[in-house]
Computed example of a mutant assay.
Amino acid sequence: MRLAELSRRSGVPTATIKYYLREGLVPPGHRVTATQAEYDDTHLRRLRLVRALVQVGRVPIASAREVLTALEDDSLDHNSRLGTAVWALPHGPESTGPDASEEEARRTVDALLEQLDWRSAREYGAESPAYRMLVTAVSTLTRLGYPCGAADLAPYARAGAQLAVADLDLIERYESPDEQLEAAVALTVLYEPVLLSLRRMSQAEESGRRYGQRAPGE
């Protein structure tokens, strides 16, 4: 297919595709003349992955390039490729510097991971953006005096483990590694508002059951 058709099928403007080509995010097409190239389904899949990273995930170009480099690294297993893609996504605010509450938060998080036997999370530890984000959140809760011990966090972690199964089940509906990486990025970003909405709706339901007015005889 020519560039115009690639743009039409992908939904990405030709100017944006040319930019991705210049930045090395999409491989060059197969040159047919000095000024024209042909593209195939490989380019279409790669373009969708780039769009998921850059447009949906708001990943900087340099980070997106790292993800794509990992995708092409035959020495990495599929788990490492997925992890690289998700780690590249922007995360919440991180610590501005160590203090007593952060050290306490780190001990709490480490105790939780030990209790859950989450081996990968313990292995990567502070290298993981999600770990650092959790430590920052627990540190804030600690400073404000809200419950945030390992026992308080455990129900959320167990719910998260169930969500991870659902996430990977969705991702495995896609066949190629490129499509699974695209889905991992897009679904991580797009499902987070779904999770937040469902949590708040569930809170409203539980509050109604606990504290709402009941009809006589109920």
Rank of each mutant, 00 (worst) to 15 (best):
Gln203Trp: 13
Asp40Arg: 09
Tyr39Arg: 00
Tyr19Pro: 00
Gln162Thr: 15
Met1His: 10
Glu5Gln: 12
Ala137Val: 10
Val138Met: 02
Ala85Glu: 01
Gly83Gln: 10
Thr84Asn: 06
Leu198Asp: 08
Glu205Leu: 15
Ala130Pro: 05
Leu21Glu: 05
Ala111Cys: 13
Ala186Glu: 10
Ala64Gln: 01
Gly125Arg: 05
Ile171Ser: 05
Gly57His: 06
Arg9Asp: 11
Val12Trp: 00
Gly160Arg: 07
Asp77His: 03
Arg119Val: 13
Asn79Trp: 13
Pro147Ile: 03
Glu94Trp: 02
Ser207Trp: 12
Glu172Ile: 09
Tyr156Trp: 15
Ser202Tyr: 11
Ser202Asp: 14
Glu114Val: 12
Pro155Tyr: 01
Leu112Trp: 09
Tyr156Gln: 07
Thr16Arg: 04
Val32His: 03
Leu25Lys: 00
Asp73Tyr: 04
Thr96Val: 09
Glu192Ala: 11
Met1Ala: 09
Leu113Trp: 07
Thr35His: 14
Ala64Met: 03
Ala64His: 03
Val194Pro: 07
Gln180Arg: 14
Arg2Ile: 09
Ser197Met: 14
Leu3Pro: 00
Gly217Ser: 04
Glu172Asp: 11
Thr136Met: 08
Gly125Pro: 06
Ala137Met: 12
Ser139Gly: 15
Thr142Tyr: 02
Ser197Leu: 14
Glu104Leu: 12
